[in-house]
């Protein structure tokens, strides 16, 4: 299991009702293709950063969609924006655009 630096003591569940889905809503609006993800992992397989560190773009965007923002916030800036993920995604998701949108949302918040 990836260690994000802290543990959730209360519950292991994704508390969907309590989570803040603001970022998810923002990204869904900004990057409509993001909804097409099926989590195949093509992006995270090819990712230069992902092969060297725990940065995992597939997981980050899944966590974002579930509102688990604390778990990936610190990871976003590890992305080099090289666009390889964008070039392999079989679903035509603008993966790079999603990262940019997440960074933008976090900054504005």
């Amino acid at each position: 299991m990836v260690n994000f630096g802290f543990t959730i003591s209360v519950t292991r569940a994704v508390e969907y009702d309590k989570n803040d889905k603001g970022c998810a809503e923002y990204v869904a609006l900004r990057v409509p293709s993001s909804s097409a993800c099926i989590g195949c992992g093509g992006c995270s397989a090819t990712c230069t950063a992902g092969n060297l560190t725990e940065f995992n773009i597939r997981k980050i965007q899944m966590l974002m969609k579930r509102g688990e923002n604390q778990l990936y916030k610190e990871q976003l800036h590890k992305c080099m924006l090289c666009g390889k993920c964008l070039t392999v995604c079989p679903r035509g998701v603008d993966t790079r655009g999603m990262i940019l949108a997440m960074i933008e949302y976090m900054r504005e918040k």
């Binding site: 990057v31 293709s33 603008d94 790079r96």
Partner: peptide, 15 residues
């Protein structure tokens, strides 16, 4: 159409 300088258009539009 593949240009990474554009961060707005979708992959389908690139196609």
């Amino acid at each position: 159409g593949g240009s990474l300088a554009n961060t707005v258009i979708s992959p389908i539009e690139r196609g």
